[in-house]
Amino acid sequence: MNDIVLSAQGLVKRFGGIVATQDVTLDLRRGARHALIGPNGAGKTTLINLLTGVLVPTAGRIVLDGEDISRLAPHRRVARGLVRTFQINQLFDSMTPLETLTLVVSQQRGVAAQWWRALGSDRGVVERAAQLLEQFRLAEVARQPTRELAYGKRRLLEIAIALACEPRVLLLDEPVAGVPAGEREELLQTVAALPKDVSVLLIEHDMDLVFSFADRMTVLVNGAVLTEGTPEAIAADSRVKEVYLGHGSTAEASHE
Rank of each mutant, 00 (worst) to 15 (best):
L188V: 14
D215H: 15
L132V: 09
L170N: 03
A181M: 14
L138H: 07
P195T: 02
A130F: 10
L157F: 08
L171C: 00
R137A: 12
E185K: 12
L156M: 07
E148P: 00
F213D: 03
V221Y: 10
I161R: 15
H205S: 10
A164C: 03
L172Y: 03
Q131T: 15
R143S: 13
A139H: 13
Q144S: 11
T146S: 13
E166T: 11
A129L: 08
A160L: 06
L188K: 11
E185A: 14
T218I: 14
C165M: 15
F211K: 10
V219G: 02
R154L: 05
Q135P: 06
D197Q: 12
P175T: 03
M217R: 08
R168E: 13
V141M: 07
L171Y: 01
A164F: 03
M217G: 03
C165T: 14
E174T: 00
V198K: 00
K196E: 15
E134C: 05
E127V: 15
L201Y: 09
E158K: 08
R147I: 09
L132S: 06
R128S: 14
E134W: 04
V200G: 03
V126D: 10
V210N: 08
E148D: 11
R143D: 15
E166R: 06
R168G: 11
T190Q: 02
R216K: 14
L209H: 01
E183Y: 07
L202E: 01
V126T: 12
P175V: 07
V179G: 06
V200M: 04
A150Q: 09
A193W: 00
R184D: 05
Y151F: 15
L138R: 08
F136D: 11
E134R: 13
D208C: 02
Q135G: 11
D197C: 03
P145M: 09
P167E: 02
Y151M: 09
L149V: 09
D173S: 02
Q144H: 08
R184W: 08
L220C: 11
V169I: 04
L163G: 01
Q131K: 12
L138W: 05
A160V: 05
L132I: 12
V126I: 14
L157M: 13
L220F: 10
L201C: 07
A129R: 13
E183A: 10
V219M: 04
A142Y: 04
V198S: 00
D208Y: 05
I159D: 01
R128T: 14
L209A: 05
S199V: 04
S212W: 07
L187V: 07
A192Q: 11
A192C: 00
V210H: 05
A214G: 12
R154H: 05
V219Q: 06
R147Q: 11
L194V: 05
M217T: 11
L220S: 09
V126N: 07
R128Q: 15
E166S: 09
P167I: 02
Y151G: 09
L172Q: 02
G182E: 12
D206H: 08
L156T: 04
L170P: 07
L202T: 01
L163N: 02
V200A: 06
G152H: 09
E186M: 15
G178H: 02
Y151K: 06
A181F: 15
T190K: 00
L163I: 14
P180A: 11
G152S: 04
L138T: 06
K196T: 13
A142Q: 11
L201S: 04
V219L: 08
C165P: 02
A139T: 15
E127K: 15
E158H: 04
E140G: 05
P145H: 08
E174N: 00
L220R: 11
F211E: 03
